[in-house]
Design a protein around this nucleic acid. Sequence first.
DNA 1: GTACGATTCAAATAGTCATTTGAATTGACC
DNA 2: GGTCAATTCAAATGACTATTTGAATCGTAC
Lengths: 212, 212
Amino acid sequence: MTAEDTKEQIMRSAELLFARDGYASTSLREITDLAGANIAAVNYHFGSKEKLLVEILDQIIGPINEERIKLLDEAESESIPDVTQVLTAFLLPDLHVLQQLRSRDPSLPRFVSRMYSEGSELMYKVMGRQFAEAQVRFYAAFQRAIPGLSGEEIAWRLNCVVGIVLYLFASVQAPGMPPMMGEDVEDDLRRLLDVTVPLVSAAAGKVMTPGG
Amino acid sequence: MTAEDTKEQIMRSAELLFARDGYASTSLREITDLAGANIAAVNYHFGSKEKLLVEILDQIIGPINEERIKLLDEAESESIPDVTQVLTAFLLPDLHVLQQLRSRDPSLPRFVSRMYSEGSELMYKVMGRQFAEAQVRFYAAFQRAIPGLSGEEIAWRLNCVVGIVLYLFASVQAPGMPPMMGEDVEDDLRRLLDVTVPLVSAAAGKVMTPGG
DNA sequence: GTACGATTCAAATAGTCATTTGAATTGACC
DNA sequence: GGTCAATTCAAATGACTATTTGAATCGTAC
């Protein structure tokens, strides 16, 4: 096994076990056993268990935001994109990565949602670094596409969309539940847009509570 | 310190540390240090670290579903409730618990979302047991309130709502983010209904993807 | 005030953890 | 074929883990 093979095997084994059991509950011993490598190889290739996690996170989250910006660039090059187009640019990369992770292993999508809610400092640092550029672009695009909503309200609603997406990642293989995503990315996107377009473009203060 | 005080202190300390660092990363030593108790007290009062977690989970999740059913009973006793009324019965108990947890400690709401995505077998068992009754009732109520949507589609959309709620719990004290919830439960509910009513009652297959 | 059950305590057990170390092995270039 | 750096290995380190044990302490009812 060449050096690169070992490093690759360690990363693939680690993300699988992190997804299934969580970061803290997974020992380097389990990882290297699954990878067919020696424990010391982790510290040789990555430096520490934590740096191994960061490298895996970057590899997954990085491409999502790169593709998001690419799609938004394309949409904006033609005309001012509407809500559906902006949301598509935002969501499609998620679905692509979800599909790709799932094809590698059904329990892998859970890795993302799991690391988000576990990750404390570490995950927020990685996400902040990776999402910073896309965030500015998408906030601006949504503000153009949805008249009459404050920037704060748009940010809030986009967070709701993120919440739904993270739940999708968590629920791909939740025990005792029907899968929330199908085989076809286009179908999944349509279904997501059906609910998220009304979600982000709904008029504020429209609904009256029964008590009020 | 009386026996009940010790047990209470251990539970309060444990949920705080579980919320902050996760279940696996929190040792009984940390818990009992914070609680001012001896390690053996955990095994005396709860039997094991895992049973301690289950008791905390039941204490938090149980009341949510009890109140959900109570509110739905009240709404259905007058007339057939509309989407807003059913969603209110579903969401208001979440907000109450969120508020209550936050008043105890700002990092506590994260406990719920964290346990969900860490969840493995254990959390799903607790949730399944606690949510089983409410699930049947709410699926039926939504099907009455939203004509033209299949039961499967309603279940899918309700899952989206759950995703948003879990994200709310996770984001109350996310580092580097503005809080998603305010001080007033009524305001928060209104804001949530603004987006979730359109979400669950949107027509299916309405949106056309740019590529299609 | 003394006996008893409930509770708490310090100490020990047996195991696992991430990381380090220095020797052994490998593969590519001269 | 020899050399050197890159990589892998087994073994050891030191610290931490949940749980168990039996003695000590507490509150309370008689």
